[in-house]
Write a protein that binds this DNA or RNA. Structure first.
Length: 115
DNA sequence: ATGGAGGCGCACA
DNA sequence: CTGTGCGCCTCCA
């Protein structure tokens, strides 16, 4: 696994239950503000039974942007809904309500999370 | 090693 | 609001 991929997975694993983050935000937190697509590629490479909650990562519009991979849009929607994340009629989530704010997590150097 | 494609994001019509 | 174009970065054949 590449350094980037590991970091992506490690960060995504820290997304709290019932919260979501955008690809761009993940990339930015890893120090690569323009690597949103890279994040998508890394997540797309995940197997179906992964421990990485890939479904908690959506695009900046608050929408599911999967087209077709091992992971399906319907599955992502179902998983999020199961965590209490509501979608509006346009299929978008409310960032104010479900968006995860890492706050001081910016530096992974901190190591453990800090609730 | 190289090329193509993609779970993005942003700026501009 | 929709549609296009371009940049950036990672994955995989």
């Amino acid at each position: 696994m590449t350094e980037f991929g590991e970091r992506v997975y490690d960060l995504v694993r820290r997304i709290p239950h019932g919260k979501v983050v955008s690809y761009g935000a993940v990339a930015a937190l890893l120090g690569r503000p323009r690597a949103a697509r890279g994040v998508g590629a890394a997540l797309a490479a995940l197997p179906d039974g992964t421990d990485v909650p890939w479904w908690r990562v959506i695009n900046a519009n608050g929408e599911i942007s999967i087209r077709n991979t091992d992971h399906l849009p319907a599955r992502q929607r179902a998983l999020l809904r199961a965590e209490g994340v509501r979608f509006d009629r346009r299929g978008r989530v409310d960032w104010k309500r479900y968006g995860w704010n890492p706050e001081e997590l910016g530096e992974e150097a901190a190591g453990a999370g800090r609730p």
